[in-house]
Design a binder for these strands. Structure first.
Lengths: 227, 227
DNA sequence: GACCCGTATATTGAATACAAAGCCCTCGTT
DNA sequence: AACGAGGGCTTTGTATTCAATATACGGGTC
């Protein structure tokens, strides 16, 4: 089974899907925002059918909630939801990492190193949060790649997208990004050394810290986001 | 499998979704089976639109794979996929169980007991595999309910549906069901006693055994299913 | 003035109709 | 006979159109 998600030809539905997902994750659409099918359709210059299908997929990803005959609303960001997501990652990612490290080849090690360098380069270049987020995720993907577990990867990917929404509203994004870089450096080293237990431990801390930062941030914002 | 019975009004898409999901999980559609939109539409007496939307959701659940301009194919059952799914559950479910037990109230205990009795009753009554599977899942849901983690539950639910496909082709279903009943009994007891570590340990064994049974079964069937 | 109920409108759900891509078979060439 | 080009057929992707439902507004009643 060759996991090749890119073989899918570009379709209108997928374009709309990417557009909407990006707007939700980036915070352009805030939690509670109602997404009107026709508004999107008119804006992009397509019919409502691809928009509908994109929304269905977004609901499966947990980014929107669809109420029958009432339409799609961007999922709200709450502390409870953040804990739900980040702790799921907390349990899951180190497990996948362990599986990956069991089977990792030199190519896999190089993939991790490369992903690390890409992130570092982008951070130093002062790239946008969107770019950094993407490369951050690419690094985590690289860590998991060798596990060769499409299902688990899919679960992780969904969780990450939702987690990213919370990460994007960090107050001091710069500090978080720099901290991430340092931890990625160590993770990449442990990966290369085959030190699985150290890698897992650090990854857990990495995610737990992110969770705590997010929670703190949400409390700081008060009820503004919750409701 | 009725995730949200009361909230969402019954829609054609959801009916088709349930129908197709059921056919895939039950094995009526084998892995590799091509699902023609128009065939389903004609059979049910609806247009292709709801069928398409149902297929999109099924792809998100990992039950079908959609190739652009080529259509939907029922996901194949392979040993690698089974390991992927069952080990994801193996890591995830005990974690959710622990979270649930931290917060469980007497009502939650009663919910687990009730789910256990329902399964026992159905097994003794010689109910169909479909019914037993549903009640089996209902028991696991009951164990997780108190955790109050919708995201994690959703992940678990998806994993379980796919896992169920493998469980359904067990050679000796009766033996597995009886074994499950015994383990459920002990799990329910640990839950009631608040013995979290014992419960987690048993749940892990429960899932690991299921994984091993499934793998054995797949090997026994040889290449017939794999290809 | 508050509340209930019907109607009007906006928005989604589904069906029909049209466009485009993939597949398969034929036919011609070598 | 093997191979490749082309065309027709099948199936999916998208647009357009019609139907059903929820929300908002207004009139009537107490």
């Amino acid at each position: 089974m060759k996991a090749s998600p890119s073989i899918k030809r570009r379709t209108v539905t997928s374009s709309v899907l990417d557009l909407l997902r990006d707007r939700i994750i980036s915070g352009y659409y805030e939690g509670g925002h109602q997404i009107r099918q026709e508004a999107i359709a008119d804006e992009v210059g397509v019919s409502r059918i691809p928009v509908r299908e994109a929304l269905v997929q977004l609901e499966a990803e947990g980014l929107v909630v669809i109420h029958t005959h009432k339409g799609a609303v961007v999922a709200k960001l709450t502390p409870e939801d953040a804990v739900d997501i980040f702790e799921a990652r907390l349990i899951f990612e180190p497990f996948i990492l362990a599986k990956a490290m069991e089977k990792a080849t030199p190519d896999d090690v190089e993939r991790v190193q490369s992903a690390y360098r890409d992130y570092e380069k982008a951070l130093l270049a002062g790239e946008s949060p969107a770019i950094l987020s993407q490369l951050n995720w690419a690094f985590h993907i690289a860590l998991s790649y060798a596990a060769d577990r499409p299902r688990s990867l899919s679960v992780l990917s969904t969780l990450y997208n939702s987690a990213d929404r919370y990460l994007r509203l960090q107050i001091d994004a710069k500090a978080a990004q720099t901290k991430a870089l340092e931890e990625h450096s160590a993770l990449a080293q442990y990966f290369a050394d085959g030190n699985s237990s150290a890698a897992q431990k650090l990854l857990k801390k990495h995610i737990a810290d992110a969770r705590d930062d997010v929670i703190r941030g949400l409390q700081h914002r008060g009820t503004k986001v919750a409701s």
